[in-house]
Amino acid sequence: MICTIADGGRLKTFLEFIGVIASFAARVITSAWRSPYEFEQTWMQVGEIGARSLPLVAASGLALGVVMTLHTHSTLVTFGAAAMIPKVQSLSFFIEIGPLVAALLVAGRVGAGIGAVLANLRASEQIDAIEVLSVDSFKFLVVPRVVACVLVLPLLTTFMDLTALLGGFLAEHALSHLSAQLFIERAFNGFAWSNFVPPTLKTTVFGFLIGTVSCYYGYTTDEGAEGVGRAATNSVVLSSLLVIVADVVLVKIIFLFFPGSAL
């Protein structure tokens, strides 16, 4: 309220921004369901966004798994609960850390890339050229990228979860010579569907947010070469912020529909 009285212009600008980006997102959704479908572009973006991000996600997951186990081991051993380490590892990564970190990594790498590429196309008037060719530049450039983000994030999240589990096992094996079979048995002991499927599928929302925000900044920028850098930066910042905020909402929604997933 104070903000509204003191700074009414900025509020209007903020609300206008919300409205514009919401209409942009609505246009993405409606355009995605209308033919013609750009399968080739979508497939290409899956490779660009998904396959190219895999090394980053896998390495991060492995490292995080090792670090997580090292921390939890020293703590849980104090309570004589070392047998809980695999379960703690799997639940924490599958439910929250895996989806969130994978989304943030994709937002950092892909969001900046999408924003920069589309802003560059706009600045070099290539988007106008596409329009001149009677090709829907929105469907050609934006929709495949957003759809690709939606599709690949659950897969990248799965990679992140399993590499983290692998890292956790390697660290635990080095510490206590725990066998792989027993580690897996303990990791999935008491594991519910709601601990894996809803958290993994919620990353489709993260992918949509990352793709939409990044494409918005890149597709709508009109500031020449300077706008390219700004679009990349804004894409990363806003998409990361939206991912975290959306995660809060999505977790509550998951708890609402899957009470058993609440730890």
Binding site: A51, V152, L155, L156, T158, F159, D161, L162, V197
Partner: peptide, 18 residues
């Protein structure tokens, strides 16, 4: 890209199976 998608789907199925 194909390998990435297949591997991702396979791992997803693996977790489902486990």
């Amino acid at each position: 890209t194909g390998a990435f998608v297949l591997a991702g789907i396979a791992l997803f199925a693996l977790v489902i199976f486990l």
